[in-house]
Design a protein around this nucleic acid. Sequence first.
DNA 1: AGGCATGTTACAGG
DNA 2: ACCTGTAACATGCC
Length: 289
Amino acid sequence: MPELPEVEVVKRTLERKVLNLIIKKVKINDGNLRYRVNKSDFLKLSGKRIKKIERKSKFLIFKIGKNIMMLVHLGMTGKFFFSNTRNKKFKTSFYYKLDNSKDQKHDRIIFYLEKKQKLIYNDIRKFGFIKVIDFDKYKNNSHLKHLGPEPLEEDFNFKYFKNYISGKNRNVKNVLMDQKCISGLGNIYVNEILFCCSIRPSKKVVKLTNKEIEKIIFNTKKIIKKSIKLGGSSIKNFSSSDGKKGAFQQTFKVYGRNGENCSNADCNTIITKLTISNRSSFYCPRCQK
DNA sequence: AGGCATGTTACAGG
DNA sequence: ACCTGTAACATGCC
């Protein structure tokens, strides 16, 4: 899915496009997302204003009207498209996106906004979801309740991580993917982080030295910051809500690079692919111990 | 045809 | 109850 940096970019784009607009009507083309959408909940959105858009790890949270929250997870292929009449007329990138039959086929939910504008939730694989919930219930929401600190929060620090991994017999790749430990990372960024730390993904956390833990904290923050700055990554199914592509994927050092040479100077070792818990891991056998 | 894909979670077994 | 790993979800692309 879009990982934290991509969701952050989507959030910022949505703020520019739909903040403070009134939802006129919602049309559900296919409600069989990860969780079946509750049509009567969506009816409540009509006539209400989008007042705030927040991001929590990989979730988007829309505050709508006085007491409604809309919780969105993009899954692997979820994305938002935005259109207005001007875009149609001038055939901007939005128009191209919206008029692409392949994309249109996967438009699952359409929010009709004021001034003939539309916000469209499009999701090829339907691993994403949208839930409309009451404001007072969202703090206890099962999706948000157990999330660990985000990479850029102060709470994600040496002491916290060292304590979290103590006594655990797990590999470092899985721990960093675990949203209860740290929320917002996914397969791509974890691969990149571990390469930067010179740590092999399969390494057991009990064997991490203090120095390595420090490196993990530092490089996680560094890479996430950098990716947000570059507009996220845009491999295959992701682009931000205005159709722009991020640039971070051009800086991938290991992800998807199996068979290629290690990008560290003078290394000349071939990047290896290894499956850990059904997910691909990429690493340099020489640089990552 | 078969394998793979940015994610999460229900379940099984220890 | 805790810990761990695996399979499943839906769809498209190579």
